[in-house]
Nucleic acid binder design. Sequence first.
DNA 1: TATGAATGAGTGTTCATTCAT
DNA 2: GATGAATGAACACTCATTCAT
Lengths: 203, 203, 203, 203
Amino acid sequence: MAKTEVRVTPRSARGIRTRSALVAAARVVFERDGYLDARLSDISAEAGVASGSLYTYFEGKEEIFQAVAEQVTEEMVHPHLRARTGVTDPRELIDLANREYLRSYKKNAKLMGLFEQVSQIDENFRKVRIERADAFVQRNAKMIRGLQEQGLADAELDPVLTAHALSGMVSRMAYVAFVQKTPMPFEQLVLTLNRIWINALGL
Amino acid sequence: MAKTEVRVTPRSARGIRTRSALVAAARVVFERDGYLDARLSDISAEAGVASGSLYTYFEGKEEIFQAVAEQVTEEMVHPHLRARTGVTDPRELIDLANREYLRSYKKNAKLMGLFEQVSQIDENFRKVRIERADAFVQRNAKMIRGLQEQGLADAELDPVLTAHALSGMVSRMAYVAFVQKTPMPFEQLVLTLNRIWINALGL
Amino acid sequence: MAKTEVRVTPRSARGIRTRSALVAAARVVFERDGYLDARLSDISAEAGVASGSLYTYFEGKEEIFQAVAEQVTEEMVHPHLRARTGVTDPRELIDLANREYLRSYKKNAKLMGLFEQVSQIDENFRKVRIERADAFVQRNAKMIRGLQEQGLADAELDPVLTAHALSGMVSRMAYVAFVQKTPMPFEQLVLTLNRIWINALGL
Amino acid sequence: MAKTEVRVTPRSARGIRTRSALVAAARVVFERDGYLDARLSDISAEAGVASGSLYTYFEGKEEIFQAVAEQVTEEMVHPHLRARTGVTDPRELIDLANREYLRSYKKNAKLMGLFEQVSQIDENFRKVRIERADAFVQRNAKMIRGLQEQGLADAELDPVLTAHALSGMVSRMAYVAFVQKTPMPFEQLVLTLNRIWINALGL
DNA sequence: TATGAATGAGTGTTCATTCAT
DNA sequence: GATGAATGAACACTCATTCAT
């Protein structure tokens, strides 16, 4: 009896307003209450719309959370670091990347913590995150391989695993520092992570 | 919050049997259904006792999960590596530690994944885990400081942050490899992590 | 119950098209999903009009179902059997009537089943059906009385009750055969019903 | 995620009391409100138990309605008419059977109407009813065949179809008279139906 | 100690209906 | 006339927790 409704991208201006209000409200409620304790009725109330209106645009909790996640992810992505900054020195690039990542993470710490939480709960959400992380790892792996070929990085390291491990290390520390709030000075954190990257790669 | 009930450590032989059966059943059910989907009634059913009996020994889901976690943690802890093996070479110790950790993690992968999940859900459980991880980090930090004082490790590194980062990296990779099941050869994983440790510390 | 809205018989050509499209769509949806599971939104979608447009012509589900029923009933009614065919022999007339009724019923079996369903749900619809059936019974009762007066039919029978019982029997069997799909050869069904009528009346 | 709970036949005396109270309450509520409008919360309220208790014994509306139906059916079934009464004359047996059926039907008219309603709504319920009706038809068919073999009944009639038609006729009239409340004297109804049976079979 | 029946709070979701555009 | 976004009432169902035997 799978009555599959089609959730629409709103056509009218009013629709766009309502959808935006819902996403914004969802962000507020999720950050305040966490994923599990967030009630859809709170979200629609916060958005100032009827409870049923939520279902005009989203299938349920997962989907509206996804919408919040997408919005935030867009805000956070800063690609093409090299092209954007003109920096080519690997050490400097590592510093820039770590610094930017940590800054963004810190700024959106509440949500980043939520992402971790929801990854543990919602299969779909986890998949999307893993894919995204993998793409990131592949980019880094490519960079490492490049450095190895130029004789600038330890040739013994497996590029993919190394990229995975070092990226994982950074995101882990971001979580520890900004979500779990284990106290540590931002600058020291960046420098330590930089140095581990550099030492590990043998730059 | 007038929880006047006292949960007892069982005195009678029957009591010990019941409690054990419940913990064992809980492990089965949690591994099968995950934390959120596990129902206490399933656990008592699996244990072959009445639903009410669970409350003789545990306050609720969190507490019985804690009991499972403690049991597993006991099985997993292998302290005093150096004393136990007589190995003193830092590189060798790093290899042993990583290898043992990853082996244990792999063996109990389902539960390790659950621990991660529950950490995101249950405040108390998270705290216990963080404390345990911190203790571990402190041990490693001490070791790193020792190596630095002997002039064997990069003196520029902050010992605590470095210990945190490198331990975090290992547990992250264990999670990625054995819970998320991103495919990677065990030996290669160990060797890569070893090498990153060694390079990072400048051994 | 201040239903001030007036549902219009469409005046414009566009209006006629819309209304027809809705009735046709309703028939499709009702046959496909049954009365209870049919959603008005499905009907308007099937008709290719906006959901609100349905209310221009109908007050709700009941009314649009009525419209479908009327359409079908018109298709099915074949009155004045005697006048139309010139047949006067009662046995032959009985055969013709049963045969025609069963053929029509079979052809519109899905809807006939729906009528039965809706009769159990919607007071209004039931009333209309009962009235129609009663009129039919009265016609048959008159015929039976005629035959009795001519000494051709068992004088002991109450004409009205007998007409009711025998008509009910036929429609019941039509339901059993064509809606419930209890397998039975069409010809045999007709002949059996004919013979029961004839025997019962003592023709 | 099919968490199939086992609904228990109550073991304790208290359980039996609760279950009975629920079935009795369900009967009241269903008769009062009809199947569709009956709310489970009304049933538990009427039974004086908590809403959740209903689910200890029944899966939902369908199942508790089934329970009511079974109870009533048991009350209504009077098998072995011939053995019970010693009557052997077919005409007399027909009278007894019709009379008893109509009396029972009249007594439980509200529920019989409900059965008709629910048959149109709930697939499962319909199946059970059809089976039961078929068994009844087969018994009658056997009787008719017996009479034919003894030369007492019209040999031209198909026994099964005839049994179906005549039984259907009776139940239809019971519905018309006692549920739809078309006014007709009980005795006249019985006699008319008897006579149609007798004439039809040619007794 | 063990039992298992009873409790009842809590919320997602549907869809007929309205009405501003 | 047509649109389609917004409304919001209504109710089933789960399952942790209790407590009388």
